[in-house]
Design a protein around this nucleic acid. Sequence first.
RNA 1: GCGAGGGUGGCUGAGCCAGGCCAAAAGCGGCGGGCUUAAGACCCGCUUCCGUAGGGAUCCCUGGGUUCGAAUCCCAGCCCUCGCACCA
Length: 978
Amino acid sequence: MDYNPQELEADWRERWADDGRYEADPTTTTGPDDSETTFITVPYPYPSGGMHIGHARTYTVPDVYARYRRQQGDDVLFPMAWHVTGTPIIGAVERLEKREPKQLSVLQDTYNVSDAVLKDLETPMGYARHFIEEHYKSGMQSLGLSIDWRREFTTNDERYSKFITWQYETLRERGRLEKGLHPVKYCTEQENPVTTHDLLEGEDVEYQEYTLIKFTQAGSDSADSDSGDTVIPMATLRPETVRGVTNAYVDPEATYVEASVDGETWIISVEAAEKLELQDHAVDRDAAFSGENLVGERVTNPVTGDEILILPAAFVDSDSATGVVMSVPAHSPDDYLALQEAKTDRERLREFGIDPDEVDAIEPIAILDVEGYGEIPAKDAVESAGITDSTDPDLKAVTQSLYNAEFHTGRLHDEYGEYAGEVIEDVREELAAAYREEGAFGAMYDFPEPVISRAGGKVVVAYQDTWFLTYNDEDWKQAAKRVVETMDTTPENTRGEYTHTIDWLNEWPCIRNYGLGTRLPWDDDFVIEPLSDSTIYMAYYTIAHRLGDVPVDDLDRDFFDALFYGSEAVDGEADERALDLRAEWQYWYPVSQRFSANDLISNHLTFYLFHHAELFDEAEWPEGITIMGMGLLEGEKMSSSKGHVVLPGKAIADYGADTVRFFLLNSAEPWQDYDWRDEQVAGVEKQLRRFWNRSAELIEAGERSEDGGDGTAAESDPTPEALEHIDRWLLSKLQTTIETVTDALENAETRTASQAAFYGFEEHLKWYRRRTELDRPAAQWTLRHILETRLRLLAPFTPFLTNELHEQLTGTPAEDAPWPAVDAERISRRTETEERQIERLTDDIQDILSVTEQDPETIRIYVAADWKREVFETVRDTGTDVGQVMGEVMQNPALRERGNEVNQLVQDLVELVRGVDDDTLDAMAKIDERSTYETAAAFLEREFDATVECYAEDDANIDDPADRARKAVPFRPAIHIE
RNA sequence: GCGAGGGUGGCUGAGCCAGGCCAAAAGCGGCGGGCUUAAGACCCGCUUCCGUAGGGAUCCCUGGGUUCGAAUCCCAGCCCUCGCACCA
């Protein structure tokens, strides 16, 4: 019976499919009773590419839990579906249609898509379908995941859309949706919003909200405007530096325009005018002119009232924010250097008609104090870094550390009034908002770096009408927090992350201009985005397999209201079909455990809590979330674009699904990161093969003895007398193993559980094999009993081989056998403690032999005398205070005579007792050391190939040639070897 | 910066929450031995240093502290990893 995982696993997969083994239906009609049902979910995969081994664990961990709960007797529902909402799949298809080399390489090299099927991938759903069928679903089935496949769906299905439609109509009605303007990335070429995938350049660049400081040009001479002074807005990310502005810069070569912006007259770059227009400002462009015209002009600081000069500078980018830059030389190393450079180039200033002496007189104005820098921080920073000109490559880092220091520790000077002495970090926003309020400041969005779309157009920030989920509603936040309070979070320390996210979450734009998915019910120009159409779909699983019977058009508001809220929630007669499905929903809901990834806490998982809090009663709220860590491959991040992935199909072909599963579950706890290393996986395969071989041998031996009719009733319990000490020891260990594994699985600790059931117990067996004759009928019975139990304990992890072996051993697959229960009768602390003594004795003898390098003939063991045992009892009663014990012991005249000897013994015993727990101490008190060692004598003789003699220290006929016996201490026998 | 996690023997990685059976699990690697015609598989032992008697010394990022006792608790420091959004 050789171990052939591929063959064996194929058989079981077929059997499961034929039997519909994991199709879960309500087994009672008594309504919801959560103690009997376990509903397990995991985020549905996004099939924009194939599945790799990193994904495999995400789905295997919940499978283990599902299998475990099933053996515990629960009705377990573990469903799966496919998330296709949004643009990633569409983007992937577009890149394929363009035959982009990178995309082709991912498809053909990483995911082995043949040329013949490549054309099937040219529609979004064709593309998705390929990866669903050929990768995800087949991968999950190969792994042996116990999924109810009848419930499968995609988020682009029309019935699913009806469900999402119901969800969003309900949310809108409940006031959780609001319409508003929101900045988006916008391609000026296509005149359309774009997503990250549409970008050619600047994919990682985030837009910034700049503060515009509205400097004014007094007595404007170009003024045919009647709206007061002309505004020259200067953009900054550090609005608090407004009091440190000494001058401004424009690019003399660039084109600027005078324009009416929301009724005011502004001078800005021509690019800025376009951007402001897209950001919902009423912009009416007037005269365009060269930047040169602005040079030498004076503008007034709206906060201080000071007049400053506009200087020419080539470094000004007219396509960045307003195209006019304010200079804060005291706090910006760039500005500081630029000012120095401007001062030296007197000739150039004259060319622009500026008096060089006036520029020379400009001095930095410090507006804050920051630790670690001098009075003029920027000056200090560049000088101590030895930077003298603006092209120095170190400048960036110097600037960054100064900005950081100022932001987190800089305190504003007295001129700032109510903000004086405050740290920038705490007041920046408040200060900017206050000035904005009084009209001194404005705002605009822009990118700090160029962003280009794949269409080749410049990407800017535009305002767009959008719908938000109002996660900032205080009452909604409170409700979400109540969900967190009532739910189990695994590991427990993630609980704070949910509440933190809830606090921090703002309104969330939940629609996009295009993509797969559900249209916004009241405006089909928009589609509901992926993170927003995946918040309560777990409820959909409970009915998905039966919804096909209901015509799509019948799935209206009332239908789902009746389904989720009951017949009283609808006017008139509730739909019978909906009420029927309602029973199914109530049977399974709520979700018992959702397994998910760490990084989804900050969006998906918290949304999941918000939506459940809003839409469902407390009884239907999530009961638990378990967070999972990341997978590495040979120490590095997996990446399908680099081909640095292992596909489950390949791994299973190489090692078998049981090995793949066992590795994934055993190498780390679910929430920890794990590392797929080929060498390690091969090691697991070896271990499983060994386990199989040993088990098969044991099973075959059992069959032989039954056939042979030698009188051994292999399956009935042996009489208590037939079991030897060592058998009872192993059976006792089995009980603690059952306990450990069960406790661990309750907390989804797959590593602890599998470690204990497999490797941990192998260690005990190793000792057992060494200690005893395995041919004894009692030993055979013990081994078979233990095998049966271990197969059940391991069934969630390696279902294929355990089912097979368990069926051969007992006639039933392991998964159909109940989860092992601890047999309290078989737990013996005393037996374990006795065996521990034998192990120690063996180790001690071994130690002596390795130091003395002798070949032993006789080993003599001397157990401590009765009076020493008395002292031990005294320590046990009195406690571990040496003085107190001595006081007690010295009451006894016989012991008092022994003086120093007793003193030393007490010290030793106090040490010994301190090192053990109370249970062990109680067990020790019951042990008869001498008989314990005597039962092990035969073993020790075999082990060391020597005669073993056992004496008590105070035996009358003791043989003690080397005068060792007196060294004996309770639980530490003296030894003599010769 | 904010939030989270972590630094353990050649490597991977337990232990730390509930201090003492911890020179510190297990796997991998290495060394020696057994079995074998041989290789593989399997089995046993060793794998910080010293030691011809079960012992001793040093050790869990660094430095302090609490304690009879610290890998484990407390304080300070150094270093590393991950997430920080409108993207799935």
